[in-house]
Design a protein around this nucleic acid. Structure first.
Length: 230
DNA sequence: GCGACAG
DNA sequence: ATCTTGTCGC
């Protein structure tokens, strides 16, 4: 079972959640990876609109081949609504449950959302990275904080995401003439490495394979849960 | 005060 | 995020 650090309770008020993010901020470390990673995981959540049940999943891939090595999923309940800036308090609990079921401890974890590209530099990738004490980064589909110039149309080009004088991430083109994705360091990794890993996880789609696979996995989990016998 | 606002 | 088929454009 993969381990994690219980840093705080999840049952908190929005104001307490913000205070926790500010307190955890000083523990974040943006630095290069200690070694070349062999495995990378993707995480995602799926749910039915208006329902509190959430389906969380984590897929571990071998970085060199992008083959799936392990998939774990859980059916849980979100104790918090979606509030911009407080996404971790909605998806974190279920993702930790899934993380506990992993047999493989991935070398780096990619999240569907942002890392430090957050108003308080505490996006889901950063926050979860602290809980699992593992290199982590975010790869989101839209911006939460910061501004950027459109990167050149060819895959591989990127422009910095700027917020209050800081470079918090990158608008990265993962596919020619397709909208960029937004990459930012979570914890125990740096921006150049996060960009490099995102490009190396190319499966021919806009979204990198870890995230794309996790998305397909949790959607399948949700559908089979509604129709157990089909 | 007004607009923006990950999933 | 989720609800959903076809369709415009490269």
């Amino acid at each position: 079972m993969a381990t994690y650090q219980n840093l705080h309770p999840w049952t908190v008020t929005p104001a307490e959640a913000v205070a926790l993010q500010q307190r955890l901020r000083e523990r974040v470390r943006i630095e290069p990876l200690p070694a070349e990673p062999e495995t990378i995981a993707g995480c995602d959540i799926s749910f039915n609109k208006y329902e509190e049940t959430v389906y969380a999943g984590i897929v571990v891939l071998r970085l060199s081949t992008l083959e799936v090595l392990e998939e774990v999923g859980v059916v849980s309940t979100a104790p918090f609504p979606y509030v911009p800036g407080l996404l971790t308090f909605r998806e974190g609990p279920a993702l930790i449950e899934a993380w506990q079921k992993l047999t493989i401890e991935p070398d780096v974890v990619m999240f569907d959302g942002h890392g430090i590209a957050h108003p308080r530099r505490m996006g889901i990738a950063t926050h979860m990275g602290l809980w699992i004490n593992r290199p982590s980064f975010g790869c989101g589909k839209s911006v939460l904080a910061g501004k950027f110039d459109d990167p050149a149309p060819e895959r591989g080009n990127w422009t910095p995401m700027l917020h209050r004088g800081d470079t918090i991430g990158a608008a990265l083109r993962t596919k020619n003439k397709v909208n960029p994705v937004f990459v930012s360091p979570g914890h125990l990794i740096d921006l150049p490495t996060a960009i490099d890993l995102t490009l190396r996880c190319d499966g021919g789609y806009r979204l990198p394979e870890p995230t794309r696979r996790a998305h397909l996995f949790v959607n399948a989990l949700r559908r089979e849960h509604l129709s157990p016998s089909d």
